[in-house]
Design a protein around this nucleic acid. Structure first.
Length: 264
DNA sequence: ATGGTTGCGAAGCAA
């Protein structure tokens, strides 16, 4: 199973690029973030034509998340079913081919110490609680998307300058670590140890060409999936060319469970 | 040098 995640920074502005990429990369499951669409405007038919079922959670101008699947799409749940991010449209879960998939768009946090920063930390805590309540780490579970945190210093282009600023603070990393401690593994780092491998580059100042980015888009796998993860990639080509998103897609491949397995 | 760019939507906000 190929699972991918991509913050597209407006699906309306990026639809042709996304469908073109899907035809090439052929993910079985694709999680999108920052669609910036209301549910009524979500182009489900364009994905249906490619063989994908889809679910979307968005209310218009900001945020918006989706799950697309060509291996089934069941038990869709939007948001937290509670006050946490009730209107934020930053979380969507669905079961795809026996895997519980969560498309997440963690709040940016803006400046360190701001009210938005505190909300970001609370959002991570709510995500951890949701996993505790709804899921079992012994099952095949994926949490993927834009987490707006660089997990390690090797995930930012200039740690000396950036550690302590937003996306690169101990508080944000601890909040992300608490989610991972539920039982999730950063799939990309199973296959790539090198620094300098990013998923986001600022539009400003030629950051992409200067290789000034951060790895803030993650595919987190529960252990049964992590054990069978054979490959991971950031598709940097999608940050190039006409009207790219400021994020590149991340892909992972997971082998099917062994015959006779009860899970998956 | 609090700059720079993009998207939405039609000015300013968010990232």
């Amino acid at each position: 199973m190929r699972i991918a995640t991509w913050n597209v920074n407006s699906l309306k502005a990026r639809l042709d690029r996304v469908t073109g990429w899907m035809a090439e990369a052929r993910p079985d499951v694709l999680c999108l973030q920052e669609t910036k669409l209301a549910d009524a405007a979500f182009p489900a038919m364009a994905f249906e034509a490619l063989g994908y079922e889809s679910a979307h959670h968005g209310d218009g101008r900001w945020n918006g998340v989706a799950v697309l699947s060509r291996v089934g799409l069941e038990d869709v749940r939007r948001g937290f079913d509670g006050p946490a991010d009730a209107a934020g449209c930053r979380l969507l879960a669905a079961t795809c081919g026996g895997v519980r998939v969560h498309s997440v768009y963690v709040p940016n946090g803006r400046s360190v110490g701001s009210e938005h920063f505190e909300e970001k930390l609370r959002w991570f805590a709510a995500l951890r609680s949701l996993l505790d309540e709804r899921c079992d780490p012994a099952d095949p579970v994926v949490v993927c998307g834009d987490v707006n945190v660089a997990p390690r210093d090797s995930d930012v282009w200039d740690p000396a300058a950036l550690v302590g600023s937003t996306h690169v603070t101990p508080e944000e990393r601890a909040a992300l670590d608490e989610v991972c401690a539920w039982g999730l593994v950063d799939a990309f780092r199973l296959h790539h140890a090198d620094p300098g491998l990013y998923t986001w580059w600022d539009y400003r100042g030629g950051a992409f060409h200067r290789r000034q980015g951060m790895r803030i888009d993650l595919v987190l796998l529960s252990r049964p999936l992590a054990e069978r993860c054979t490959w991971a990639l950031v598709d940097r080509n999608e940050r190039k060319g006409q009207q790219p998103s400021d994020h590149a897609p991340v892909l992972v491949d997971v082998d099917p469970p062994p015959a006779g397995s009860a899970k998956g």
